[in-house]
Design a protein around this nucleic acid. Structure first.
Length: 398
DNA sequence: TCTCCACAGGAAACAACGGTCT
DNA sequence: AGACCGTTGTTTCCTGTGGAGA
């Protein structure tokens, strides 16, 4: 599986084990860097679970790439094994709430990851059940298999209602489960997330709060160094890692992005046939990391959103101004023409307004509301965030 | 300072879909 | 087989409002 040999079977001159630079890669404990205190706090908060008692519910905050999910996964793994020594069975369910954002999807996902059909004789179908059915099955599974259930809700702020949180936090007191107990670890990158919750849920969910600060340059450097085994020995020049670390610390403190840049730098060196990864490759890699984000984002957009974006970009390009403001009605009429040419039915105005505000949410465009005076109504103008040429190119290639 | 209306955007309803349950 | 479920994408309906011009 590793990319250590090239297409032609020759050994890769740059990478020894590229997997170490994949985001999904879960490092060993000695590779988790600069998070000792957070790990300890987290462990303290949930340690009761190891003895079969109800753990504290925890809210973990911190920007992206600060190691929240990583540490949570690590510590819960650890908990499961130390609980085993006490003859306590702990089940951990990890849910990415960005993917499973509705109440039903979340319960389903939790039930599914705690379940073992052979053991419980319960099936968790992908769909078709009512929400309450999924809950019923989840409670059964919990009672059947575990003393303690730990639910990790990653990107908890993406949840579209508090209902799951309500149900989960009240499961024991409302008698839904009797022999088992349940703990929740919520992970969010919005520091104000707690304020959006209703009072009941808030108090029970945030018994403990933890904040992960962005990594500083020193820690980023250590993190990158710990992945140096991804490269062949001596391939990465000395200045490279400090440079990436400084860059990433200045901009965001995001370890994930820093690792991406390191990988891109390696790829740059490889493509140019250089034998070592140099500082110049870092600059290229940095640019590449940014450009990739845009085209990746656009390629994942539904086709009508792409058409709209394309229409907006074309109009921005024709405009004399540098950063022109295009009214929604203009975008819409060009979009209609483009759909006609393609032979697809255009969406109605109302829907288009929704799609445009989604694009704004994704920071691909900027919107501004303006009034037009007596008898002329109010309207919205749209601006591109990136260069029109870049956007058009990305729309075409996608 | 006040007026006025086209558009923004919330709410609800609908349709299609892919699934389960009895 | 037919009732039922949740999700997604869309349309229809409707109210609230920004701000240029009177």
């Amino acid at each position: 599986m590793s990319d250590s040999t090239s297409f032609f079977g020759d050994p890769d001159p740059i990478f020894a084990n590229k997997d170490l630079l994949r985001v999904q890669h879960l490092p060993d404990k000695d590779r988790i860097i600069g998070r000792d205190e957070e790990l300890t706090q987290l462990a303290n908060a949930i340690k009761d679970a190891a003895h079969g008692r109800t753990p504290n519910n925890v809210l973990v905050y911190g920007k992206t790439g600060t190691g929240k999910s990583l540490c949570t996964k690590y510590i819960t793994n650890d908990l499961v094994s130390s609980a085993e020594e006490n003859d306590v069975s702990v089940g951990v369910a990890y849910v990415d709430c960005f993917q499973d954002s509705t109440e039903t999807q979340t319960v389903r996902s939790i039930a599914d990851s705690l379940n073992d059909p052979d053991e419980t004789d319960v099936k968790i179908p992908m769909s078709g059940l009512s929400t309450s059915d999924y809950y019923r099955r989840l409670w059964n599974i919990l009672e059947d298999r575990y003393d303690v259930g730990l639910v990790i809700l990653d990107e908890i702020d993406k949840l579209d209602s508090d209902d799951v949180l309500m149900q989960l936090s009240r499961a024991a007191e409302s008698g839904k489960i009797e022999d088992s107990t349940l703990g929740i670890i919520g992970i969010s990158n919005k520091i104000r997330y707690k304020e959006t919750l209703n009072e009941r849920v808030r108090s029970s969910l945030s018994e403990r709060n933890l904040v992960f600060a962005p990594y500083d340059a020193k820690q980023l450097g250590e993190i990158l160094n710990s992945r140096i085994d991804a490269f062949r020995e001596g391939v990465v020049e000395e200045a490279v890692i400090p440079k990436i670390a400084a860059l990433a610390a200045r901009e965001h403190g995001d370890a994930r992005k820093a690792i991406d840049i390191l990988r891109y730098a390696g790829e740059s060196a490889y493509e140019r046939g250089h034998e070592t990864v140099r500082e110049t490759h870092v600059d290229e890699a940095h640019e590449r990391e940014e450009r990739n984000r845009l085209s990746e984002l656009i390629s994942k957009l539904p086709s009508h959103s792409k058409h709209l974006l394309n229409a907006l970009a074309l109009q921005a390009q024709q405009h004399d101004d540098d950063d022109p403001e295009i009214p929604t009605e203009d975008v819409y009429s060009l979009y209609e023409i483009m759909c006609e040419q393609e032979g697809t039915d255009p969406l109605k105005n109302r829907r288009v307004r929704d799609l445009l505000s989604e694009l704004e949410f994704l920071s691909v465009i900027r919107q501004q509301h303006k009034g037009r005076g007596r008898g002329r109504g109010a309207h919205t103008v749209n601006q591109l965030v990136d260069e029109p040429e870049l956007v058009i190119k990305a729309c075409k290639s996608a």
